[in-house]
Design a protein around this nucleic acid. Structure first.
Length: 757
RNA sequence: GGCGGCGUAGCUCAGAUGGUUAGAGCGUGGGAUUCAUAACCCCAAGGUCGGCAGUUCGAUCCUGCCCGCCGCCA
């Protein structure tokens, strides 16, 4: 076994605040780091923040501060949260630090000296949000995020990525373990096989970055800047590279699945070009979904770790704040590692969190510790009893010993294989077994007798229970460090961080050990904790529509909900195969929403998918000033809508109708949307403006037949992205038998832009 | 559209180079118990292992097609 381990999280882009997605990545890394350390392996765990780029420059401008002030603030939030949670990173690198900047310049110069960087020029579209060039015609939105692109004409430095195509493929071939999970590996390989183009690695359109050495009109491409952190933090290119010499290459880069490409293609290529060793493994984990929906600011369903720390921390009011936080962190850590299959997308909900907590931590492990220590306290004065081999009980104690000794290697193998949920399942099997053994041997009955045999049996069974708990605790320490440390101390084992758990095996618990003070570990969580956490997030995630119309929140929420339902109708019509059912369902949802609005009650709206990335370069939030789509609140209730006059069931008022802005528009451009069978991209003239609308009518109308045709559109529908393209409105059509759309039109000629009233 | 992945109990997931009654946890129903955090223990209900066809003595597992979901395609 190697005696060092270097692992990293991505450095988080400071354009978004820390949320549960970034917390997840960091928690996984922390658990691995703790396990490695407890095995006596010299471990270096790096995290940090990524702080350059045009997006930051503009966000700072919007916030009315300098980029440095802006990044100082957000970076501190990340670090503050990690500290609150007691995460044990060994270094926190910021890309704005001098140590990083000078090393990145050195790397750039090295690549240039090696002949892998040359000057070229580029004219085309640039997406500020993604910090990337995109291959679309001028004026078209970014295919990745749907935001507007900018036309740029830049003379840039290029990295000869194309020179590494074959070398990379050979590397993947020789190191099949380099990328996990396998599905990510397949993607990367097919990407490289389809041909690599040289990569533009400098920008002149903004200043907030690291200047290219010798040509300060350019700043270095943010991804080259960011990726280099993994070596600059170790002191590569500095006066003192000893740490680099010790720890590089990295043993594990943990990243979100959306950035595997950068870590599995660009990063190895840069390193190859620089003549440096390649990291041993990159694992691209999945996203955390909230109740099966992607989290996004526009959806208003971003969950923050703080909510969990606060809520669970409050369950232990007697503890100092820092310990409360770390207790809350344990709860979250356990959930994330147990519930989510590492590598796959996982579903987060407060309901599931409380459920897991109560059944596994409170009723399972916590109760097991409690009942065992209570009995040792009561029957043996809090001293670990003698492990006597009592014939009548040998089968039970042997059972405990055997399954424990089997579980240790199994847990370790699974954990080290990054299959955390399975590892924890193994540990909790031990908890279940032990509960069964305790019940079967009924120590409380033995204690009621006073013969020597019963006393010996009692001692044997309680020793076995305590010893099994010691081993379980050692195993799960990396996952629930705060709680495990408490149990460790209660078992009279001292500080768990001092323990070397490499040779963990049955029999390590010394009879006669005086137990420490026993405190409740995991008080049961009440159902109302779920409501509380949902409400806390609600407050932190105001629905954008409501926020934009202060004082009229309820109404705004309803309007926004109706809009998203109408969007849903458009999508159903364009994409669903079972359109009739989908449309009927949505229609009744619309009708219900209108009724609710009228009657002043509120229920949950069905959710609509909005693609948003979770990690850097995340596009969570309207950071570039792009309007975000209003979304219905996903959970709980919102403020009661403004009083509305009573109306007959199923009817709307004239005011309600007046909210829908129907206009005559003329189709100027119509073309099929690639990859969508039913979708057409239309550009329509509204008299005073032209806008893009996506309509699910490709199966009924040939694009060329539509040019010049006058149609009715809903002009004030919230923008919505379909297949990466933004749709600003909806074409009105009748849905006839079989779901076929028939466009609404006029028998007489009408003026473009005219409103329908 | 191209390439890749997935579809197993209400939920989250295991699993088998193809071979007798397909598993676990949670949830649900019943029972038992009192050491323990209304907890723990036992029992039960619940699955044509996405659909159809093929290969085979035998397929949930292999092959093909289909349906659904998802990822990557700078």
């Amino acid at each position: 076994m190697p005696d060092k381990f270097y692992l990293t999280t991505p450095i988080y882009y400071v354009n978004a605040r820390p949320h549960i997605g970034t917390t997840y990545t960091t928690v996984v890394a922390d658990a691995i780091a703790r396990r490695k350390r407890s095995l006596g392996i010299e471990t270096f765990f790096l995290t940090g923040t990524d702080e350059h780029g045009q997006k930051i420059e503009r966000s700072a401008e919007k916030a009315g501060c300098t980029p440095q002030e802006f990044t100082d603030r957000v970076s501190a939030e990340f670090r503050g949260l990690w500290d609150r949670m007691g995460l044990t990173y060994d270094d926190f690198i910021r890309t704005t630090e001098p140590r990083h900047k000078q090393a990145v310049q050195k790397l750039f110069a090295l690549l240039r000296d090696q002949g892998y960087i040359y000057k070229g020029s580029y004219t085309g579209q640039y997406c500020v949000s993604d910090e990337a060039y995109v291959d679309v015609p001028p004026g078209a939105p970014c295919p990745e995020c749907g935001r507007p692109t900018e036309t740029v004409n830049e003379e840039n430095y290029y990295f000869k990525l194309s020179a590494f195509e074959r070398k990379l493929l050979e590397f993947y071939q020789e190191h099949p373990e380099f990328i996990e999970p396998e599905t990510r590996r397949n993607e990367v390989i097919s990407f490289v096989k389809s041909g690599l183009r040289d990569l533009s690695v400098s920008r002149t359109s903004f200043n907030w970055g690291i200047p290219v050495p010798g040509d300060e009109t350019h700043v270095i491409y943010v991804w080259m800047d960011a990726l280099a952190n993994y070596i600059t933090a170790l002191g590569w290119g500095s006066q003192d590279p000893s740490r680099y010499d010790r720890f590089w290459p990295a043993d594990l880069h943990i990243v979100g699945k959306e950035i595997t490409r950068f870590h599995c293609i660009y990063w190895p290529a840069f390193l190859m070009a620089a003549g440096l060793p390649l990291p041993k493994k990159v694992v691209g984990h999945g996203w955390l979904l909230f109740e099966d929906n992607k989290m996004s600011k526009s959806r208003g369903n971003i969950v923050r770790a703080e909510t969990i720390l606060d809520t669970f921390g409050a369950m232990k009011p007697d503890l100092p704040k820092a310990e409360q936080d770390r207790f809350g962190a344990d709860v979250l850590r356990y959930f994330l590692l147990r519930e989510v299959v590492f590598g796959q997308d996982g579903s987060f909900s407060f309901d599931a969190l409380v459920q897991r907590y109560n059944s596994d931590l409170a009723n399972g492990y916590g109760n097991l510790v409690s009942r065992t220590l209570a009995m040792i306290g009561r029957y043996f004065g809090g001293v670990v009893p003698e492990n006597s081999n009592v014939p009548s009980l040998v089968s039970l104690t042997k059972l405990a010993e055997n399954f424990t000794n089997r579980a240790i290697p199994l847990y370790s193998e699974r954990f080290d294989d990054l299959r955390f949920s399975l590892a924890l399942e193994t540990a909790w099997e031990m908890v279940g077994q032990l509960d069964g053994i305790i019940t079967a041997s009924a120590p409380w009955k033995l204690a009621a007798k006073d013969d020597a045999d019963s006393r010996a049996e009692l001692a044997a069974i309680l020793y076995a229970a305590a010893e099994a708990i010691r081993i379980i605790t050692a195993l799960v320490y990396p996952v629930i460090p705060e709680s495990a440390a408490k149990v460790w101390a209660q078992l009279g084992q001292g500080h768990i961080t001092q323990a070397n758990l490499k040779d963990l095996k049955w029999g390590g618990l010394k009879p006669g050990t005086k137990l420490g003070e026993s405190t409740p570990l995991f008080p049961r969580a009440e159902k109302e904790a779920i409501t509380r956490m949902n409400e806390m997030e609600q407050k932190n995630n105001p629905a954008p529509a409501a926020a934009s119309e202060p004082g009229n929140e309820g109404k705004a929420a309803h309007v926004s909900k109706l809009r998203s339902l109408l969007d849903g109708l458009a999508v159903a019509a364009s994409e669903s195969t079972n359109e009739t059912a989908a449309i009927l369902a949505l229609e009744s949802a619309v009708a219900e929403t209108v009724r609710e609005f009228v009657s002043g009650s509120e229920k949950r709206a069905p959710a609509n998918p909005v693609p948003v990335k979770a990690n850097p370069p995340a596009t969570v939030g309207p950071a570039t000033g792009t309007p975000v789509m209003p979304a219905a609140p996903s959970t709980g209730t919102v403020a009661a809508p403004a009083a509305a006059p009573a109306l007959p069931e199923g009817k709307i008022s004239i005011d309600d109708f007046a909210k829908v802005e129907l206009r005559v528009a003329q189709i100027k451009v119509a073309e099929r949307v690639p990859k969508a069978d039913k979708l057409l991209r239309l550009e329509v003239d509204l008299g005073d403006e032209t806008r893009q609308i996506l309509a699910g009518i490709a199966e009924a109308y040939a694009p060329e037949s539509l040019i010049g045709r006058k149609v009715v559109i809903v002009a004030n529908l919230a923008p919505r992205k379909l297949r990466g393209l933004e749709s600003n409105g909806m074409i009105v059509a009748a849905s006839v038998a079989g779901g076929r759309p028939v466009l609404a039109g006029f028998l007489e000629d009408v003026e473009v832009g005219a409103r329908l009233k």
